[in-house]
Amino acid sequence: MILVILETPISKAGLESLCCATKLGDTLTVGLVGAAAQEAANSIGGCGARFLAVEGEPYSVSRYATDAAAAEALIRASGAALAIAPCTHRWQRALPGVAQRVGGAIDTHAVDISPGSVRRWYYRQRIEVTLARAATPWIILREPGSGDPWQGVPAQATVERLDVTPPATRTQVEGIEAQAASQQTIRPDAALLFVAGAGWTKKQKDGAVRTSEASELILQFVNRTGASLGSSKSLVDQSGEGQAVLPFLTHLHQVGQTGSTPRHRKGLASCCHGEEPHVVGWRFVNERRAINLDPNCGWARGKADVLYVADAFEVLREAAKALGQPGAD
């Protein structure tokens, strides 16, 4: 039996986990956690699962103590040998502790789940592994964006509510802070990820460092194309060293080793030299192009579909012209 743990309302990542679970060919239980479960259950009623829920105000927020209590109750009540949940912040925080409590095993960042096995990455996303476990319950957190969402029809669902006494907690969730400007972070919803590398802040052909022009060109480009902005670790790190850097970059922009591995459909790397952006950072980006001065850059070769050997300053200047609408900045 498989249990799918989802929060309400059900997110796209949740629907992806559900879709994945329905393909495993086992009886399905959906466990819902949130303020109220009925509506969410109805929205996926067509999946044919049994519905369990832990609902109420304490479970309406993402918090370890309450989430862990809810998930533990769902796993115990369902008797499932396999529990699947989306690998979102909420479940990644809560479910490892639950695995400990129920004496189970846990795997995270799964990109593929087959009956009896899981595929995921190790060593900062450099090694692919398929593994199988005998321990139960086995909790698997599935990486958002690595499969299709469930697309069945809504249907009236019967929800069995579990009576879980909210655990004592000293944590109160105050709210969510979204960064004010759209370019303050990597936005997964953008069609294009534009990765700025350390080359932007290096000495250019004329011997000058032109950081302010680089800032202007990059911001102009991402604003006009609606692209999400990412950066390499080396460029972000420089901000800690007091060097001339692009002022709007923070660790939240970082792709690669100790950053994120975005899943945009298209990726354009500029002035990146090295493994982070090319090997790790855009592993899950489908279509990849790069602008680099070095035609022999071993890092773009074999990793990008197209490598433009050109000066990124010039290309972005020209791109700004091609994109037009200066008022759109």
Binding site: E241, D294, N296, C297, G298, W299
Partner: peptide
């Protein structure tokens, strides 16, 4: 004739053959 494996550019050698450590500050 660079092959990206054994014959790589000088800068690639710095990246593929190890890592330059230049501590901040």
């Amino acid at each position: 004739q660079y092959d990206g494996q054994l014959l790589v550019t000088h800068q690639d050698a710095l990246l593929m053959g190890g890592k330059v450590q230049a501590p901040a500050g």
